[in-house]
Design a binder for these strands. Structure first.
Lengths: 382, 382
DNA sequence: CTGAAAGCGCTTACAG
DNA sequence: CTGAAAGCGCTTACAG
């Protein structure tokens, strides 16, 4: 509609631009969709301003090529008509989307109603970092089993992808290969595995495990247990485990492998694993869980079996999820810096866009001592 | 590049389509951006399949207009070349984005590092509902102070908007007016306020408050306190408050207004408000907090002042955030059905797209009894 | 059932 | 400093 008047506007450009309403009265109303007012186009602005559409485009992008007076006039008219550049059109033309896709992979086994709280913090910080760059963020929850491949990039919906929660890199690898092969720009949150396709930002899990182990040993504990899958399938858990046992070995002590039970990153799994551990009869006076969720489940299991935390067993978790401060007793944990993580993921994605070299630092986790490991109540937040 | 071969393809369509590599060797590599392989276009597929580009477009959309044999061939070739329809181009042409924008408004006073956990559940369910419809979800965190207006729709980035956390509808109203005026399609999560622009999905907060009050009275409590801003500025809190006091009034009792203190939806605010309440000296043996976060803060305040929960004071929260099950003691709460909420928000947005009448039901909240109000430990989720 | 053509609303060389 | 024109990669009448 509005469009139709534009050619006329150019034809009679000798005439001064009059503020004629560019919408026609005989607008066809679709029965299916409710009527929407016609979005004004850059041609409408051009007509009103008495300049060419190209000039409108330049003026709105603050191009120095355009005369200041012209620019101001165009911008004023655009504002008056509440005109906004159509992102879809400008994206098509300029071949960029100014959008990042965040793919959150949920473990199919986890509770459907609840996202891993750790990822929530990441989401929050990624959203902020993305917005700071003037980019939009597309969020999608995926199952590892789904065939997402490079979909977001292939379909040109995003300039780059951030992958979260692809913890089991054995099964994700072929998909990552495919992404890499398509020269998609993506960043991975997770462990730094050699010859893993793509770039990762991750936490120094080994250090985190080491710090946790050292803390427990410093507290006088001797029989240290570990809950969490330490296999190659969970490289992050494995690194935590290795750091933990290194702390033990360094003191000339030996980690008792019968004090390790596999667990997935859920409370339920931690609960079950801990029951197994307790019921095995093997004595232990300290426990590191590979995640806070596992730790929370484990504490419940101990309480159910009449073990006191921290008197009988000192417990340390990993992640620093918000709940960790609220459980009973408040959980000592190895806190990950999700703020820095989100920033780095986004920054490095932009570096890929600009062909700059990436900074793949390991983030240093921080031990937060609370009551579950015998810390003073004061050290809990608030 | 690939594009260049397409006209030829049509010109020599008498010749059988040969699988000639459509990319030329003298590709110019930009120094700025890293080289990306040319995305194949529908013309490339057309060339290979020996059909017109229109036919490719139809075949890929499973149009019944196209011969099955042709369709299969085209689809096979598209798959082989890993061709995906360019969303940006198709969106521009078809004038739809197949994208929904979720605008989360954060209270500027709240802790920067942590999103309200209640909204996280909503986000999760909205993401799922959106994906079920084959739509993408754009997520943005906003400050109420920001001038977002109808930006997402104006710039044609989304077909519709879902607004979360615009709790203070007094200050948000002008912006909602503007959205409505622009005939933007949007849904609001929140209270059903009369003549509020747009459509809302909300929880029956009055009922929730009533149920909480009734529960406390049934437990034999007599002096019921309330923590939360009950002014017009917080219509949701206000409704909860009104339901709560109605439960009291209905028993021929009177709510003591000196047992109400304002609090925002943060733990800190609940902590402060509860200290004030305690220090006022006015006796109380039960407390409803307008949210779980407030309740959690309040419990900490009581513990700090030596009040036992639930022995001295029975506490009920509102929302049913994950942490509510973990605090000490586990918190009795009025749980909101975020699953249904997300579904309804998305469904009603789609109804707007199709001009269908909306279903604006109030969602019924559910009381979950845990230890903080004297419930048995068993009723807390395992 | 298929193809040639128009056009979605911009950005950006190219030519003054 | 400005404008006319091309074209991003599709979808969809329109005409066989």
């Amino acid at each position: 509609m509005a469009k139709a008047t534009s050619p006329d506007a150019n034809a009679q450009s000798n005439e001064p631009a009059l503020p004629i309403e560019p919408t026609l009265p005989n607008e066809p109303t679709l029965p299916e969709k409710p009527a929407r007012p016609d979005r004004p186009t850059s041609f409408d602005i051009a007509y009103r301003a008495g300049v060419s559409q190209s000039t409108v485009s330049r003026a709105l992008r603050d191009s120095p090529l355009v005369n200041k007076a012209t620019r101001d006039r165009v911008q004023a008219i655009a504002k008056e008509l509440n005109y906004k550049v159509d992102k879809v059109a400008s994206n098509l033309r300029s071949q960029s989307t100014r959008t990042i896709a965040l793919l959150l992979c949920e473990d199919p086994t986890s509770d459907d109603s609840m996202i891993n709280p750790f990822f929530m913090s990441m989401l929050s910080s990624i959203t902020r970092a993305t917005a700071r760059q003037g980019y939009d963020l597309l969020v999608s929850f995926q199952q590892l089993s789904e065939d997402w491949h490079a979909d977001y990039e292939d379909t040109h919906r995003a300039d780059g992808i951030i992958l979260l929660g692809y913890g089991d890199y054995v099964s994700a690898r072929p998909k990552l290969e495919k992404l890499k092969q398509a020269q998609a720009r993506f960043m991975l949150w997770g462990p730094l595995i050699k010859d893993l396709p793509g770039h990762s930002i991750g936490c120094d899990n080994h250090l985190g495990g080491y710090v946790a182990g050292t803390h427990l040993l410093d507290s006088g504990r001797q029989q240290l247990a570990f809950l969490g899958d330490a296999s190659q399938h969970c490289p992050e858990f494995r690194q935590r485990y290795l750091g933990y046992t290194d702390a033990i070995t360094q003191r000339q002590l030996t980690f008792n492998p019968r004090l390790q039970y596999d667990a997935e990153n859920t409370e339920m799994s931690g609960f079950d694993a801990c029951l197994q551990l307790i019921d095995s009869g093997e004595p232990f006076d300290a426990l590191m869980a590979a995640s806070d969720l596992i730790a929370i489940g484990a504490i419940k299991a101990m309480q159910q079996r009449g073990l006191r935390v921290p008197e009988d067993v000192a417990v340390v978790g990993f992640d620093g999820i918000p709940s960790s401060a609220y459980v009973n007793p408040p959980l000592t944990t190895v806190m990950q810096d999700t703020q820095a993580a989100g920033d780095l993921l986004v920054d490095n994605l932009f570096k890929q866009f600009h062909g700059e070299p990436l900074t793949t630092t390991l983030l240093e986790p921080k031990l937060v001592v609370r009551e579950s490991s015998g810390g003073t109540p004061d050290s809990s937040p608030q």
